[in-house]
């Protein structure tokens, strides 16, 4: 049923630290790798080795240059994927009931055997989180690796989304935002923010704001060396050259 649950017991999601992300795209690759081989239709590629390659991805890493009013510009790497919104507009527009938000943990999923591939959910999402697979004709989106996080066949440390597990800098954190004591809730409380809050989607995923850069000292690093008086031969040379 594509009506949204009034309340979810858990709010599983990601906290993505824009301060720590180095833009290596390892999460993109890990996501594509995992979601190619288990849950639902594989993420297909078209013309993969040709002139115009194109493919389905559930996670994309943008890089932005941000220019503050004063000082130098900053480069910020920005992973973009499904935010598992509490008021997910992609769910309510679905005519077949293929799109749904789980009452137990808040994950937004697509039941591919019900999806007719009309694309309306992708239109409804302000964040571009959904991509229609050109091969299977069904809508693909982040599943929060629902086939990993509850999977008792995996060692416990692997029971988190592939992107989180693979991130080499620890920029991605997975947890329950409904629990105020969880790691992700604590992180979000300090630096978390929502993307396009005015769209009224109430995203579960939070982005952690980059910390302020250290201020560059105005004094030269060579300052202690600049006052040295030249002595001996160098001093004589200094005086002679100064007089010419």
């Amino acid at each position: 049923m594509t009506c949204l649950p009034g309340h979810t017991q858990k709010k599983l999601g990601l906290a993505i630290d824009l301060d720590t992300c180095v833009g290596c795209h390892a999460c993109v690759t890990a996501c594509k790798g995992w979601n190619d081989q288990g849950y639902g239709a594989p993420l297909s590629d078209q013309d993969a080795y040709g002139a115009q390659p194109s493919g389905t991805f559930l996670n994309r890493v943008h890089s932005y240059q941000v220019q503050p009013d004063e000082g130098f510009a900053q480069i910020i790497n920005f992973p973009r994927s499904c935010l598992h919104c509490e008021d997910a507009p992609c769910v309510t527009v679905c005519p077949t009931g293929a799109s749904y938000k789980r009452e137990e943990d808040g994950i937004v999923l697509v039941n591919e055997s019900d999806c007719i591939g009309c694309g309306l959910c992708a239109w409804a999402c302000p964040y571009g989180a959904r991509e229609m697979d050109a091969d299977a004709g069904v809508m693909k989106k982040c599943t929060l690796c629902v086939d990993r996080i509850y999977n008792e066949n995996l060692p416990e440390e692997d029971r988190e989304p592939a992107c989180v597990r693979t991130c080499p800098t620890g920029a991605r954190h997975f947890g329950d935002f409904a629990d105020p004591d969880s790691k992700v809730s604590q992180l979000a409380a300090k630096r978390g923010f929502d993307l396009m809050p005015d769209m009224g989607t109430r995203p579960v995923n939070k982005y952690l704001a980059p910390r302020p850069k250290d201020k560059r000292s105005e004094a030269s690093l060579l300052a202690p060396l600049l006052d040295i008086e030249a002595k001996g031969f160098a001093g004589w040379l200094d005086r002679v050259l100064g007089k010419i």
């Binding site: 824009l18 993109v28 991805f57 994309r60 890493v61 943008h62 890089s63 932005y64 240059q65 941000v66 220019q67 503050p68 009013d69 510009a73 900053q74 480069i75 910020i76 920005f78 973009r80 923010f193 929502d194 993307l195 396009m196 809050p197 005015d198 982005y207 704001a209 980059p210």
Partner: peptide, 18 residues
């Protein structure tokens, strides 16, 4: 607002994701 990075300054694309 899309990136939430307006809190730092003016945002421009540095490199596209693909």
């Amino acid at each position: 607002t899309a990136t939430g990075l307006g809190r730092i300054g003016k945002v421009a694309v540095f490199e596209q994701p693909h």
